[in-house]
Design a protein around this nucleic acid. Structure first.
Lengths: 107, 107
DNA sequence: CAGAAATATAACTATAAAGTAATATATTGA
DNA sequence: TCAATATATTACTTTATAGTTATATTTCTG
């Protein structure tokens, strides 16, 4: 059930996929609802949903003929974790100042 | 000086680029040092460095014939910010604490 | 049970990106 | 100035991906 993500960044790199996640963050949606909100064909949306599903980022509940998708943000924690060792580079104002001074002569 | 990133996720989607950032997080490196550490040709590394530079993620200091690259993690804050509204979805005890603290700030 | 509605998959095309070899540019030092 | 060193750029090829149209699948409804 829990998929391992080969490259989550690659999945999130596609702007339409991030838009879909943004929609699902607000409320679960059927495929048709998403299609209506986006400049994409229905198969285009379905393809992105499949990729998001395989990444574990959304889950699907079949309700009659409609498929209701909902957000599963858990895998995004992987991004959060990747960011972790970089966080100190922007959270310390003194370090920032040092870095700005270092960069000044770069062309 | 401050570049606007068309799509930072796309830039980070490339595994070799993330590896380069990981190296630079530890210490600044010349192009040659990075080449020696990676299964890529020198032009390949230079191409990635250019992309990272244009994204504002690394900065360049020319030192004699060598070019010394260093990390500039600031643009990664954009990823952190994008993640923000999703954080509550993978809630665990730590995130619950964060949310409580956030509420305290806003009151 | 036939047709409609909703979604998924298949087959195909176009584009972008990553990789390479070859070459250009810049700096150092003999 | 010339050769060596370090890096960047160019030109090209290959591959992957996003998009499309057409079709298949599933489920409801009359």
């Amino acid at each position: 059930m829990n998929m391992m993500n080969d490259n989550l960044f690659e999945i999130l790199a596609e702007p339409n996929r991030r838009t879909i996640l943004d929609y699902l963050r607000v409320k679960e949606c059927t495929v048709g609802e998403i299609v209506d909100l986006m400049p994409l064909s229905q198969p285009g949306v379905s393809k992105h949903l499949r990729i998001l599903r395989e990444a574990g980022l959304v889950s699907l509940r079949k309700e009659a003929q409609t498929h209701v998708y909902s957000l599963n943000a858990r895998p995004l924690e992987e991004i959060h974790d990747w960011l972790e060792p970089y966080r100190k580079f922007w959270s310390n104002k003194l370090d920032d100042l040092e870095r700005i001074l270092d960069q000044d002569e770069s062309s």
